[in-house]
């Protein structure tokens, strides 16, 4: 039996759907991520080995080849700017990366902002978005609860992920622009794509079939 293909799975939001699609593609998957304590799990059929990582770390694991493949949100992949292949889009994890501000913000185009303070967990994408419009934004990079920043005067705007927009609304914020439409992605290491070509291709095709049937 060949070595299993190592797959980096994002803990949290995308995990359940990811495991569901892998199961439908015919791969043995760990049950409920085993309660979330073990970080490396082997599929019972020996075809996949799962490493459980923080979503934002999936591209790094894959770029370095610590995982041959991985499942991550497009938002995370674009923010990470890692050199990986993206063979497949998966039909879950839909969300948008948006610019949002307080509902009572003056109705001013973003390009006319002087140098807004922008709170975000996505500094690279945020910087690029404002630079493109000629605006020198002052980034406030946060680890969580970005919506809080405009409410307490820490930031003028935020750039954050929304699914339904309910959290924004509850906090008196409105969406101003969409930066990126995101969904789950299968990514692959450049070396593994070659050295494990058969296994990677089987996974791509299996998941693509499962996605079509979904």
């Amino acid at each position: 039996m060949a070595e299993p293909l190592t797959l980096a799975l994002p803990k949290g939001r995308l995990m359940e759907d990811a495991l569901g699609f892998l199961a439908r593609a015919g791969y043995a998957t760990p049950v409920n991520g085993d309660g979330g304590r073990k970080l490396i799990l082997d599929g019972a059929d020996g075809r996949l080995r799962f490493v459980m990582v923080k979503p934002a770390d999936v591209p790094i694991f894959v770029e370095y080849g610590a995982a041959d493949v991985g499942i991550a949100g497009l938002d995370v992949v674009r923010e990470a700017e890692r050199d990986v292949y993206e063979p497949l889009r998966l039909p879950f994890g839909y969300c948008r990366l948006v610019v949002a501000g307080r509902r009572d913000r003056p109705d001013l185009p973003l390009r006319l902002e002087r140098s807004p303070r922008v709170a975000t967990k996505f500094p690279r994408l945020t910087e690029a978005f404002f630079r493109k419009r000629g605006v020198a934004a002052e980034l406030i990079v946060m680890a969580g609860s970005v919506e809080l920043a405009p409410l307490v005067g820490l930031a003028d705007l935020i750039v954050d992920l929304v699914q339904t927009g309910a959290t924004l609304r509850e906090n008196g914020l409105v969406e101003l622009r969409t930066i990126l439409e995101s969904q789950a992605l299968l990514i692959a290491n450049r070396a593994s794509y070659r050295l494990r070509a058969g296994d990677v291709r089987a996974l791509i095709d299996g998941l693509a079939n499962a996605a079509r049937e979904a």
Binding site: Y64, G65, R190, A191, S192, R194
Partner: peptide, 9 residues
């Protein structure tokens, strides 16, 4: 050229 374990060319 690639080698097993090293993710880069």
């Amino acid at each position: 050229g690639f080698a097993p374990g090293l993710g880069f060319n």
